[in-house]
């Protein structure tokens, strides 16, 4: 059994490596084989001599295959060149921002689950009731409201009335509130819907009827029998949300000038700081692949049913 688990993990890992390799290759093909790469590989203000220097150093006059080999070697060593703006290795600039993005993402996820699970349960238990109606209204709106606009509306309506809420940057704990809500509200809707349907499924199982039949009160049925069994499915949702949170953070961080990776990417685009953009894009996709790998493996570890369904 455990060898099966291990070989699954290895297979998944290799697939992850293949995906990263593909991403790096796509980045290379797009950046070197279309147009004149010197347009973005050199700072705008570079002189003709500097441009020649950069061409020499990057070997832009060499055959593409050679360039590709060098590009792969550099990427493996996490060498993405120097940031034009910061005049430091791009990977350093990226690394400094990671913690802020992770913190914001964790806050958003905690918010999503703290709101989504209770409301999902109530919506399922009191099906057709007020909470159920409101939660469905939110789900419908959630698919129609752009998250950047939601953030701006929160600033407009909340930050103006509540002075203690900062509208941008990271100045203290209160800085997490608005971006956290904005980033967490879409996953919250997803968690809510998922909890609701998972609870509804569980409530129709035979063992729930048995629990009721033996005279257990409704509270006991829901808390002990229904909730625990439906939570397993909800936990699997956690992994699915990570990619969405990372993608959403680009937008939300930009709205709130949050000093994280997403805002860095947008700032670097505006400053035409190509090495940082490239480093951030490649590193982010590596993290996403890694997180998915960890999530997959831990699920198949936790739930034997997933294990058997691997292929």
């Amino acid at each position: 059994m455990s060898t099966q688990l291990a070989s699954d993990a290895v297979a998944r890992f290799l697939r992850g490596v293949a995906v990263v390799f593909l991403v790096v290759t796509i980045v290379f093909v797009l950046s070197r084989a279309t147009g004149d790469p010197i347009n973005y590989l050199a700072p705008i203000e570079a002189t003709a001599e500097e441009i020649e220097g950069i061409k020499d150093r990057l070997g832009l006059n060499d055959p593409l295959v050679e360039q590709y080999g060098r590009f792969l070697a550099d990427t493996v060593q996490l060498d993405f060149g120097k940031s034009f703006r910061a005049q430091r290795p791009a990977i350093e600039v990226v690394r400094e921002r990671v913690l802020n993005t992770v913190l914001l993402g964790v806050v958003a996820l905690v918010f999503a689950f703290a709101v989504g699970i209770p409301f999902g349960i109530i919506a399922a238990v009191r099906r057709g009731g007020g909470v159920d109606l409101i939660s469905r209204l939110f789900a419908l709106l959630g698919q129609a409201v752009p998250n950047f606009w939601l953030g701006l509306m929160l600033i407009l309506f909340l930050a103006v009335n509540f002075d203690f809420l900062p509208t941008g940057g990271r100045v203290g704990v209160t800085s997490f509130i608005l971006p956290g809500i904005t980033l967490g509200s879409f996953p919250a809707a997803a968690v809510m819907r998922f909890t609701r349907s998972s609870m509804l499924d569980t409530l129709q199982q035979d063992y729930i009827r048995t629990a009721r039949a033996k005279g257990l009160n409704e509270r006991g049925v829901i808390a002990k029998h229904a909730l625990r069994n439906s939570m397993l499915a909800v936990v699997t949702l956690l992994g699915l949300q990570v990619g969405g949170i990372l993608a959403g953070s680009v937008v939300v961080e930009t709205v709130f000038a949050w000093p994280g990776l997403g805002f860095l990417i947008i700032q670097s685009i505006r400053a035409t700081d190509y090495p940082v953009v490239q480093a951030a894009v490649i590193m982010t996709s590596i993290w996403i692949v890694f997180v998915n790998f960890v999530v997959d493996v831990s699920y198949s570890f936790l739930d034997p049913r997933i294990r058997t369904g691997v292929n």
Binding site: P37, A247, V250, S268, I269, T272, Y274, T284, S285
Partner: peptide, 14 residues
């Protein structure tokens, strides 16, 4: 593994 937003950012950069 490659969220649309990253692709968009990258294409905008080049």
């Amino acid at each position: 593994a490659l969220p649309a937003i990253l692709v968009a950012v990258f294409l905008a950069a080049i």
